[in-house]
Amino acid sequence: MDTILGMAKINWRHCRTAWLIAGIVFLVAGPANYIVWLILDFDDTSLVAMCNYLYLLPVCLGIFVPAQNFHKLMHLGGKRLDFFKSSLLTYVPVCAVVSLLSVVANLTVDRWMVASGEIDAALDLLNAFEFMEHGAVIAFLQMTAFLIFASCAAHTLTLIQGRWYGWVCDAMLVAFICMFAPVKPLLDAMVWFWYMAIFHSMAAVQILFCLAVSAALYWVSSIPIRSRAF
C-alpha cells in the first residue's frame, strides 16, 4: 500500500503538464472571460462559473499520468500492477477535491455574484446537470462520480493509443458521433447513456452508473498496461 500511495503522490507532484494546462485555463480563461464580458458589455450577463474550469484537471491527469509518468515510474523501480492501482488513487481524491471546490463556489461566490447584481447567472455544470437540485452533499457525490468516469475514460483512451484496438476504438468513437445522430436506435442509446451518467432523477442511480462504467473502463486499461512496451 505504501508503494501505491507513494506512486500516487508522485503523480500528484510530478504531472506538471496536467497542472499547467488546468492551471492556465483556470487562472487565465476565467478572468479573460470576465474581462471580455466587461469590455463588450453583453446584454446577456451570464458567466461560466470559475470552478468549472477546474473540471479539466482530472481529465488532464487521466491523459498525462499514463502518457508521461508510466515509463518514469518504471525507471524508478515501479511495478505495472502498482501503477494500475495507483492511477485510480491519483484520480479519485483530485475528482473529490475539484467537486468539493465546485460545490462550495456554487454556494458562495457564484450566488454572491448573482445576488450582488454583478451577473444574472453563473453558468455551472452543477446546475446544468441538475445535481444541485439534490442538495450540496449529493451534488458533490454526483459530480465526483462523473469526474471519476471522465478521468478513467481519458486514462484508458490514452493507454490504448498506438495499439490496434486503440485505433479501432478511435474510429468507433468518431463513427458513433457521426452515425448516432441520424440513426434513431443509436441516438436513443446515446441519449440513454448520457441520461444515466448525468441526468437520471435518482442521484444514487447516476452515481452507481458512473462508478460502474468507470470500473469497467479502468479494468480495460489493465490490458494495455500489461503489454505496454518499456
Binding site: 508503494t3 506512486m7 508522485i10 515510474l73 524508478l76 523501480g77
Partner: peptide, 9 residues
Amino acid sequence: AAARINPAF
C-alpha cells in the same frame, strides 16, 4: 521519489 515507491531504498 524513488524512496517513496520503494521502502527499501
